[in-house]
Simulated assay, not measured.
Amino acid sequence: MKKDQLLTRRRALIAGAAALGAAGAAGVLASGGGDETARPVAPAPGPDPAPQESHVLPPSDYRLQPLTGYEQVRPAPRMTRVRHQPFLRVRGRGRTMVLTFDDGPDPRYTPHILDTLAEYDVRAMFFVCGEMAVDNQDLLARMADDGHIVGNHTWTHPLLTRLKRSQIRSEMERTSDVIEDAYGERPLWFRAPYGAWNRATFQLGAQMGMEPLAWTVDTLDWTTPGTRTIVDRVEDGAAPGVVVLSHDAGGNRSQSVRALRRYLPHLLESGYHITVPRRRHA
């Protein structure tokens, strides 16, 4: 099957994913510091954090791709509102939660996480690093096929607040390019490494059509505290609207893999609806 046919198939799967895993959970994401939040729309699959455009923003300065042969020209990314705070949680109907995994994909751990999510028919978000994604594009393709959301987590996971604006742009653009090639769509979400945001990250993310998403519950699994501790942190922090941060790369993530297998069925049995956020224009 040709690459363009595969991407067409993946785009169709991505578009229908939220409807499969997020029925009746329409809502918005809440930011961390008084920033404007999105208005809920009529009942639709998944929480919908994207705000109505209230004003015209400057055109994007994202580089244009020249037309070469029969290669498709990438459309300019849709501008989003420039935020001053990242979204921290979901506000919607019912006991809605979002599971997110950072720093991958890693062929040692990501496939096991995908297997568990598939077993329970649950969708999650993966914030990937370009340097990991470029060598594991098959895992991004599987995420697309399984209906997960892939977000931008920069290329090398640097502390962005110490970089020049041009360096931040490069980190984000290169990662978005790899995601589009393997996943079939450019990312609509961005997460700053270490949760270190500044004005440039918000502005550049908006120019590339991405919304900033942080988290509510940090499992601190990167410290390898033990499987039981990770499970306790998720279950103790579970509440309507919570966004959970875990990792599928960046070190030994076997505890994170085992913890997911324990807390996911418990959350579902407790009535939580594990879903992914949906952008209105997505």
Results as ranks from 00 to 15, higher is better:
D4S: 15
Q5G: 02
L6S: 06
L7D: 06
R9S: 10
R9Q: 13
A15Q: 05
A17V: 04
A18C: 11
A19C: 08
A19I: 01
A22M: 08
A22H: 11
G27M: 09
G27N: 08
A30R: 10
E36L: 13
T37R: 03
A42T: 12
A44Q: 09
P47N: 08
P49M: 06
P51C: 10
P59D: 13
D61S: 13
Y62R: 15
L64Q: 14
Y70K: 12
E71G: 14
Q72D: 13
P75T: 12
A76Q: 14
R78Q: 14
R78Y: 11
T80H: 15
R83Y: 04
H84S: 10
G94I: 08
M97D: 04
V98Y: 03
L99W: 01
L99E: 01
D102I: 00
D103E: 07
P105V: 11
R108P: 09
R108K: 14
H112I: 03
L114Y: 02
E119Q: 15
A124C: 02
F126W: 03
M132Q: 15
Q137A: 14
M143G: 02
D145I: 00
H148K: 04
I149G: 03
V150A: 04
H153W: 10
H153R: 09
K164C: 02
R165D: 05
I168K: 01
E171K: 10
T175A: 07
S176Q: 13
S176M: 07
V178F: 11
I179H: 04
I179F: 05
I179Y: 02
G184V: 03
R186E: 13
P193A: 10
A200T: 12
M210I: 06
A214P: 03
V217D: 01
D218T: 00
D221F: 09
W222Y: 08
T223Q: 15
T224H: 13
G226P: 09
G237V: 03
V244C: 06
N252I: 11
L260H: 06
Y263T: 05
E269K: 14
S270N: 13
Y272D: 06
T275I: 08
R280F: 09
R280M: 07
